[in-house]
Design a protein around this nucleic acid. Sequence first.
DNA 1: TATGAATGAGAATTCATTCAT
DNA 2: TATGAATGAATTCTCATTCAT
Lengths: 210, 210, 210, 210
Amino acid sequence: MQPENRSGDQVRRSFIEEARRAQIVRAAIETIAEIGYAKASFAQIARRAGISPGLISYHFAKREELIMEVMFSVYGSMDRALSDRTEDAASCTEALRALIENFVRYCADHAVEMLAVARIAASGANDAAKARDWVDRGREEALTELEEMFREGQRAGEFREFSPRVMAVSVLAALEATPVELIARPDTDIDAYADELATMFELAVRRPGD
Amino acid sequence: MQPENRSGDQVRRSFIEEARRAQIVRAAIETIAEIGYAKASFAQIARRAGISPGLISYHFAKREELIMEVMFSVYGSMDRALSDRTEDAASCTEALRALIENFVRYCADHAVEMLAVARIAASGANDAAKARDWVDRGREEALTELEEMFREGQRAGEFREFSPRVMAVSVLAALEATPVELIARPDTDIDAYADELATMFELAVRRPGD
Amino acid sequence: MQPENRSGDQVRRSFIEEARRAQIVRAAIETIAEIGYAKASFAQIARRAGISPGLISYHFAKREELIMEVMFSVYGSMDRALSDRTEDAASCTEALRALIENFVRYCADHAVEMLAVARIAASGANDAAKARDWVDRGREEALTELEEMFREGQRAGEFREFSPRVMAVSVLAALEATPVELIARPDTDIDAYADELATMFELAVRRPGD
Amino acid sequence: MQPENRSGDQVRRSFIEEARRAQIVRAAIETIAEIGYAKASFAQIARRAGISPGLISYHFAKREELIMEVMFSVYGSMDRALSDRTEDAASCTEALRALIENFVRYCADHAVEMLAVARIAASGANDAAKARDWVDRGREEALTELEEMFREGQRAGEFREFSPRVMAVSVLAALEATPVELIARPDTDIDAYADELATMFELAVRRPGD
DNA sequence: TATGAATGAGAATTCATTCAT
DNA sequence: TATGAATGAATTCTCATTCAT
């Protein structure tokens, strides 16, 4: 669901270095989710990680690199979680439901990460420009895949006639709105939420009368 | 669709001052929409307006005040545009369609403004905190109104049983996704887009079999 | 009690111009006394005078000029008030008492002006440098005159032996502390205050046993 | 002689950091004493300390914090120096003399510091407001203590009848005038100055005929 | 004369990044 | 590797002063 991975960053890194990088990325995610991108200075992130600000620069050449690592980390994990499970769908309707339910459940377990990347993408900061472009490309790919799925469902006579693009945009918007809602209302029944969403779009795409 | 207006800022302002303020607000909106909130410094905004950076401070006591004026300006105009037209709906279904179509058409005419306020709200910046709170309150009100509309439709037997909250969140998300889509694809047929969106949610809410 | 007057500012000024200048000087004095030198911007002074900030610059070439006019105005009036009355003293003791009592009474009537010039002199601001120098020269002259008075009293056998300089510094300090005290405690009985001060220094200077 | 010390700023600081802070405080004191509060910008202070302006902000969150540190530093040292020595006075007369002499001697050794805090207190600047309040409270306390001492001397029949308040104000004024005088006349004989001042006020307070 | 909008020169402050240790 | 002190660039904000009206 995301674009090509990190170009050619085939840098050999020791185990300990990888661990530090992961720790810093984790601290960055939490800090951004909690206080927002603009206030997530190296000082804040370092404080949360229990290290010194200089160490972040030691491990990441530029702030941009750290932010991109956040992206790779979050979307990598998300892609792994979602891709396994959407394959074996018997119909487009089932595939759509599976996609929505899996995504919502993933959000429930990773709301902080989702919030962090959303904040990065939304921030107009210079350091986040590359990340934003990357997210935008990823979003466009996701939209294309969704459109393709809708077109297939229409070809198969499973879905009614509608604009695959508008439907894709709306499904994606509804999905992306989930983390904020789950954080705002932590008591939300996840399965019910997922089912509501899936049902809503099932009704929106199915042939009338089916 | 937005919270109470500016408390008691009944400052008398000359015509020329009002014009300048409007010009600066306009330049701020365009700058934020184009290069993002974080990069929209006074220097950038002033450059676009063809004035000196100091003049912005001359007209707006704090950056926060400028940002709030952007909010008031955009949402004020939006409220005026949307409120007139949603009243006279014969049914909840019609009301929902009217709301969606009006909103989409408004977005088509004011995509830049909508993008700017979205970016302000998403920015974690300190100067935007008040604006973000204000938008959040407005969004919560909008959700409540939508939920109420759905509940009424359900009471009236017009809508099927579903979670008003999830539906409201999804409708709002789809609406809020519109400006980005319209800017990304300027050739989009607005009326078609609005109709697609309205139909989609009509099908999602109506009683099965109707 | 003050140094040579304004060097060569023999500018002819119309009556109306003099009136404006006086009005601005008055507003400056009140503003500085009330909110302090640092916050007494042209905007503040103009607001109090009911005019526009630009008009101050129209009448005073530099801020420094306005500040100097404040000085001339306050010390001019003070000199006039004090000089008339200290002449006809029969003894140094009487002269000292007359000086102290006259000064205290003058302070009581002009506390605001005295506070303003004190604040100007104490402010390290660039614009106040000339005024500060001028006050310093005036203070030095005043000290010299006091010292001379003490020496004369000592020569005449009226005063005990003491350091005229230390006594002069202390008398001046006590006098200069008066405005602040009178403003802090507006209910102070002026005549009693003046008498206390005069008596205190009479006892401090008189020959023991007298 | 000063109000309660810094509330609860028990921040752990490394040795090197403490040293830098002290160096900056020192540079601030000297700069303020030399060129005045208003001109003592971070740039000036940093130039004197041989560091970059940003480093001051690195060590002190706000300008106000630096200014308060100047206050704590100066008055802390002063309180330590004065409190030890005024306790064991056999009479009020002796206590008064001890107070005056100790203060003058302290001023002789710390004229620059005394000048700096006086300038801070006199500056109307916003950043100095807290310091000014603090000094004002301290001054009021000092006056109260002096008044109390005078009242006690009067009750004991040691002092004549006079207004303790006026005497306290005048003594404090004379003391506060000392640093300026000592800086203006560096050759002043300190012990003689102290003795003159003490004698002056002894004569002013003692019962006539004693 | 008078206005008040406009400028431009500082000011403090924030922060990624560097570097000596 | 790690620290955290230090730098320097960028930003907002303040104001005397200027200038078109």
